[in-house]
Design a protein around this nucleic acid. Structure first.
Lengths: 241, 241
DNA sequence: CTTCTTTATAGTCATACTGACTATAAAGAA
DNA sequence: TTCTTTATAGTCAGTATGACTATAAAGAAG
């Protein structure tokens, strides 16, 4: 950046800067990602991550929130409250066949299923299973893979998993979130012991326990606690070899 | 990115895309960061991170390696071999007073002291203590702070600390790297036990032990092992409260 | 050439944490 | 009722960790 004064902003083919959003939810024990169907070339008809251009007076994070609201029909307030995390920036020269596009990718985790009602821009926002996903436009498959890696790693030492849960949830639901993201089964009593022993991870909610739709003993309800990190961490079972 | 075909690349004031490099080393028990002195406005005379513009046909990571070689006199081979990690991207609209600049920040850790011999571009590359550092240009103080947080966190669950050490090192030196980055003192026997018990963290080097410059019993030499991550992690001592 | 100081390295021991279980409770379903 | 399912309590052994103690091997001080 030191020689910027010698640089004429109009001299080169300019860079475009975009944001891409990898928004995840857990539905029916499977990880889903929010995708839109592209209307235009390139990759017309293909599925892609929501996203768009960063405007001249806007930060990448603001752009991410704006695009998310526009493309999924989320209210501005919801979009502003959402836990958004910058993932990384993708800058390979040919990642977009039309022009030089550098994209800042963000990740968000949302609870349950606020069924996206695509407003205007892309009325085709839809949750798709993150595993059996179709071919994606650009390098978006790579972005999703990177996001999943990051989320799985963060689950070990942060309270992030509660972002996938509704306001009040059972420990069984929280465990299912972990199992879905990590793709492993966890021992129920041990998971429970660990979560409850970690100060600030969850807090009990007063009021009647709820049933999980029917079967089994009703479970107690909890809400997310105030802690952000887990100490000591909740490590994935090691793949021994 | 879905509506890119409706976007005229020349219609707006274009974005410039730069890289900034936070390169760290440990010297005399203190964390140092590589800085250059700016020759031009804005912030003429101020210290700043090395970095520069991403060229039209180059990825951000390539740009980072190229700028590092240019501004520090590192050979291309050394720059190519360096452990570079993307930190995050800074995109606040007014972070550069001249124009819209989006910067992708990278972090690198280097061993010992390959005293930077600034070649051409910025002959003023210099190691500065990361703590008592002077005021920095742009948002570079923020970048350094973010990089330090990231490095400290990664030390807990990766073998990254060996990147600060020369090819062969003693466990005492490795421990000092941890202590410097974390800013805490560690118990020597416990540190040793943990490092040696973690498979792939370090490997013994045959040949004579070396003295650490004089005092004390000569220490055995080790080199970095093949593992990338630590299982279980090596956690910082908890600040109990 | 002792004695001191420094650093490396080998242990010990109690506690914390984890993985693998067993047992019991409370619901709906058969 | 009995079966199945889920929640929750508890046990027990193995591992990891924090706080130490002890010994070895160097240079420095006298």
């Amino acid at each position: 950046m030191n020689d910027a004064t010698t640089y004429d902003p109009h001299a080169f083919e300019p860079f475009a800067v975009t944001v891409d959003l990898a928004v995840f939810t857990v539905r029916e024990g499977r990880l889903h990602v929010l995708l839109i169907r592209r209307g235009q070339d390139p990759y017309a008809g293909a599925w892609a991550l929501p996203g768009g251009f960063v405007l001249p007076r806007e930060s990448a994070e603001s752009a991410a929130r704006r695009e998310l609201a526009e493309e999924t029909g989320l209210s501005r307030e919801s979009a502003a409250a959402l836990h958004l995390e910058q993932l990384r920036t993708y800058s390979e020269p040919d990642r977009d066949p039309r022009m030089r596009v550098v994209s800042v990718a963000y990740t968000a985790l949302v609870p349950g299923l606020p069924e996206p009602r695509g407003g205007g821009d892309a009325a085709h926002a839809q949750w798709m299973p993150a595993d059996g996903a179709p071919a994606l436009a650009f390098d978006h498959a790579r972005i999703i893979a990177d996001a999943r890696d990051r989320i799985g790693a963060k689950f070990e030492y942060t309270c992030l998993a509660t972002a996938f849960c509704p306001r009040a949830f059972t420990l069984g639901e929280l465990q299912q979130v972990y199992e879905t993201v990590w793709g492993v089964e966890l021992d129920r009593p041990n998971f429970r012991r660990k979560v409850l022993a970690t100060p600030g991870f969850v807090e009990p909610v007063e009021g009647a326990p709820r049933r999980t739709g029917g079967r089994g003993k009703p479970a107690a309800l909890y809400r997310a606690g105030t802690a952000a990190t887990l100490h000591p961490p909740l490590l994935r079972p090691q793949r021994r070899f």
